[in-house]
Design a protein around this nucleic acid. Sequence first.
DNA 1: GTCTATAAAGTGATAGAC
DNA 2: GTCTATCACTTTATAGAC
Lengths: 209, 209
Amino acid sequence: MNSSASTKERILTAAEALFAQRGFEGASLRQLTAAAGVNLAAVNYHFGSKDNLVEEVFRRRLDQLNARRLAALKQVVGQPDATLEDVLAAFIRPALDLSHDGGGSLFMRVLARAFAEHDDSLRKFLSDNYGHVMRQFTAEFARLLPQLSKEELYWRIDLVTGALTHAMSGFGIIQRKSDVSETTHREQTAAHLIRFSAAGLKDAPGDWA
Amino acid sequence: MNSSASTKERILTAAEALFAQRGFEGASLRQLTAAAGVNLAAVNYHFGSKDNLVEEVFRRRLDQLNARRLAALKQVVGQPDATLEDVLAAFIRPALDLSHDGGGSLFMRVLARAFAEHDDSLRKFLSDNYGHVMRQFTAEFARLLPQLSKEELYWRIDLVTGALTHAMSGFGIIQRKSDVSETTHREQTAAHLIRFSAAGLKDAPGDWA
DNA sequence: GTCTATAAAGTGATAGAC
DNA sequence: GTCTATCACTTTATAGAC
């Protein structure tokens, strides 16, 4: 029953889809291995445990995603006339591209679930492994928005994060129309996200802070 | 082991807390009835099934929440000089108040989970029972933002929804400091949400739409 | 309305043959 | 590296005594 990919990769792909659809608790190893066309015992052989498999599902996509984000940010920071929109684009575009190339469109839904879960160990894993990315972007936002207090900036970045996660996990009311190409739709999505986020970030600071 | 509240109410309260913490699949009836101090069989006696219990957890809070939202919106629509911020406040403040009175602060986390779940039957339940509330608010936004195309407006409302859900479920980086009262913190949260959302909604429409 | 006991099925994980 | 078989346990739900 082996297709082209390795057993390990096929488990990861099937797990990503099932975690997106039914959650980490909701997706059982039996459903998962059946979908991947591999033996039940293969999960424990290759990953050790279900928890470890969950982490590997994140690692596979986030390593690539965050490398691309940091590369894009580096490009932007190099330019003296970089705008807030440029920094937002460096953060957003790589995430939208995920849904294009790797077939990893489901991964953003997995990520949205992880946010909603509040699971401490999972959050610690994400923070430990990818927190430095968020810190670099935050520093750049702070540089471009010096009029905002630290607290006000954190608040707004938090709200931007919410909007992005929501939009990128794709449960918005906006569906791509059949006469719009996938590429065009992704460009429009990026433009909406960047514009909306920039407007919220740039707004004058509140006078009550 | 009976405290003051009825068995039914105590199950609902325990279920809300556990669903927020461990998810709908992750929270078992055994954990739930143990936390409520009631017998395991009481869930099936009072609610028929776990799925039905989930719906009742939503109904208990959303009936009140949406009634307050519509009442607040009615007040706003009555005034000829109502602002976008007023409409946003009518939507946001009742949700923040939930965390104050009923001890229902956990409910917003349950709601955030429901959004991330993509569960069709749950989404249909929410849409069937509370969709009219969102439609009324959308109509008011459209009236106050006539420069936006229907598509652009829907996009922005969707992004606002993401920011609100994220913030109200309380997994932001912003925590209340010990020297800030609960009331003050809620006011600041509301101010941030309203200001940020209004800025994103009011931004000039894109020229590519 | 609340209880115990249990049915029937599902769960993650593992031992051991190949 | 892959398989079967199974362990030890948990799950929802229900039957029937009180």
